[in-house]
Simulated assay, not measured.
Amino acid sequence: MTRADAAHSLTMRDLQSMLRVSRRVISGLVEAGFVMPARGPRNTLRFTFQDVVLLRTALQLRASSIAPRKIVQALARLRSELPDELPLSGIRVTAVGSEIAVRTGPSQWDAITGQHLLDFEVAEIKGDVVFLESSPATKDAARQAEEWYDLGGQLMSADLKGAEQAYRKAIALSNEPFYAAYVDLGALLCESEGRAEDALRVFDEALSHFPDDAVLHFNRAVALEGLDRLAQAERSYERCLELDPSYADAHHNLAMLLESLGDKQGLLRHLNAYRRLTS
Results as ranks from 00 to 15, higher is better:
81 E>C: 02
82 L>K: 04
82 L>M: 10
82 L>W: 07
83 P>W: 05
83 P>S: 01
84 D>Q: 13
85 E>S: 11
86 L>V: 04
86 L>H: 08
87 P>S: 01
88 L>Q: 13
88 L>C: 05
90 G>W: 06
90 G>N: 06
91 I>D: 00
91 I>C: 05
93 V>A: 11
94 T>P: 00
94 T>N: 10
95 A>F: 03
95 A>I: 01
95 A>M: 03
96 V>D: 13
96 V>G: 09
97 G>Y: 00
97 G>R: 00
98 S>W: 06
100 I>W: 00
101 A>S: 13
101 A>I: 05
102 V>A: 03
103 R>P: 00
103 R>N: 02
105 G>T: 01
107 S>G: 03
107 S>C: 04
108 Q>N: 00
108 Q>C: 02
109 W>P: 00
109 W>R: 10
111 A>Y: 01
111 A>V: 00
111 A>W: 01
111 A>P: 00
112 I>S: 04
112 I>A: 04
113 T>L: 04
115 Q>K: 08
115 Q>G: 08
116 H>N: 09
117 L>C: 09
117 L>G: 13
118 L>D: 08
119 D>E: 13
120 F>S: 07
121 E>I: 02
121 E>M: 06
122 V>S: 03
123 A>W: 09
123 A>L: 07
124 E>V: 03
124 E>R: 12
126 K>P: 05
126 K>L: 13
127 G>Q: 07
128 D>L: 10
128 D>S: 14
129 V>G: 12
130 V>K: 01
130 V>H: 07
130 V>Q: 09
130 V>C: 07
131 F>A: 14
132 L>P: 04
132 L>W: 08
134 S>L: 11
134 S>P: 01
135 S>P: 05
135 S>H: 13
135 S>R: 14
136 P>A: 14
136 P>H: 14
136 P>E: 15
137 A>H: 11
137 A>K: 11
137 A>P: 12
138 T>R: 06
138 T>A: 10
139 K>A: 13
139 K>W: 07
139 K>T: 14
141 A>W: 10
142 A>R: 11
142 A>P: 02
143 R>K: 07
144 Q>H: 11
146 E>M: 07
146 E>V: 04
147 E>W: 02
147 E>M: 06
147 E>Y: 06
147 E>G: 09
150 D>I: 14
150 D>K: 15
151 L>N: 01
151 L>Q: 02
151 L>T: 05
151 L>G: 01
152 G>W: 07
153 G>W: 12
153 G>L: 14
155 L>G: 04
155 L>K: 03
155 L>Y: 06
